[in-house]
Computed example of a mutant assay.
Amino acid sequence: MKDEYDFSTMKSRKNPYASKLKKPVTIRLSEDVISYFKEMAEESDIPYQSLINLYLRDCATKHRKLEMSWKK
């Protein structure tokens, strides 16, 4: 290993993982929904926001759609 490195000659390049980074969003969730995920997060020792992200990713990859019907 060298004692010193010269980084001035290095070429810069884009981060190949930049497209996979998480994007911050603002979302309004009911308190009971947040409580539910926080309880699950404590049991599984995963941050609740990561748990919500994993749940939503699972829904997206499996193309799950919510079926709703309104009572007349």
Rank of each mutant, 00 (worst) to 15 (best):
D6A: 01
D6F: 01
D6R: 03
F7I: 07
F7Y: 08
F7A: 12
F7D: 09
F7R: 06
S8Q: 04
S8P: 03
S8Y: 01
S8F: 05
S8V: 05
S8K: 05
T9H: 12
T9G: 14
T9L: 11
T9N: 14
M10H: 06
M10P: 02
K11G: 09
S12F: 04
S12C: 09
S12M: 10
S12L: 10
R13E: 10
R13Q: 09
R13Y: 11
R13G: 12
R13H: 09
R13A: 12
R13N: 08
R13I: 06
K14L: 13
K14I: 08
K14H: 10
K14D: 14
K14A: 15
N15A: 09
N15I: 02
N15F: 00
P16F: 02
P16K: 06
P16D: 06
Y17S: 15
Y17W: 10
Y17L: 13
Y17E: 14
A18F: 03
A18S: 13
A18G: 08
S19F: 04
K20C: 07
K20F: 04
K20V: 03
L21C: 15
L21D: 15
K22M: 13
K22H: 13
K22F: 10
K22D: 13
K23D: 02
K23A: 07
K23W: 01
K23C: 07
P24V: 02
P24L: 06
P24C: 03
V25P: 01
V25R: 11
V25D: 00
V25G: 04
V25M: 09
V25H: 09
T26W: 06
T26M: 07
T26H: 07
T26S: 11
T26N: 12
I27Y: 02
I27S: 05
I27E: 02
I27Q: 04
I27P: 02
R28S: 13
R28E: 05
R28V: 07
L29E: 02
L29S: 06
L29K: 08
L29M: 09
L29I: 03
L29D: 01
S30P: 09
S30H: 11
S30I: 00
S30T: 09
S30R: 12
E31D: 15
E31M: 10
D32V: 04
D32F: 00
I34V: 13
I34Q: 08
S35V: 05
S35T: 09
S35H: 07
Y36W: 04
Y36D: 04
F37R: 05
F37N: 04
K38P: 00
K38G: 01
E39D: 08
E39L: 05
M40Y: 00
M40G: 02
M40Q: 07
M40D: 00
M40P: 00
A41Y: 01
A41S: 11
A41G: 08
A41P: 06
E42K: 15
E42S: 15
E42V: 10
E42T: 12
E43K: 13
E43Q: 08
E43I: 10
S44G: 04
S44E: 11
S44C: 10
D45T: 10
D45Q: 14
D45L: 07
D45N: 15
I46V: 14
I46E: 05
I46H: 03
I46C: 08
P47W: 02
P47H: 11
P47Q: 09
P47A: 12
P47N: 09
P47F: 06
Y48I: 00
Y48N: 01
Y48E: 00
Q49E: 11
S50V: 15
S50Q: 15
S50L: 11
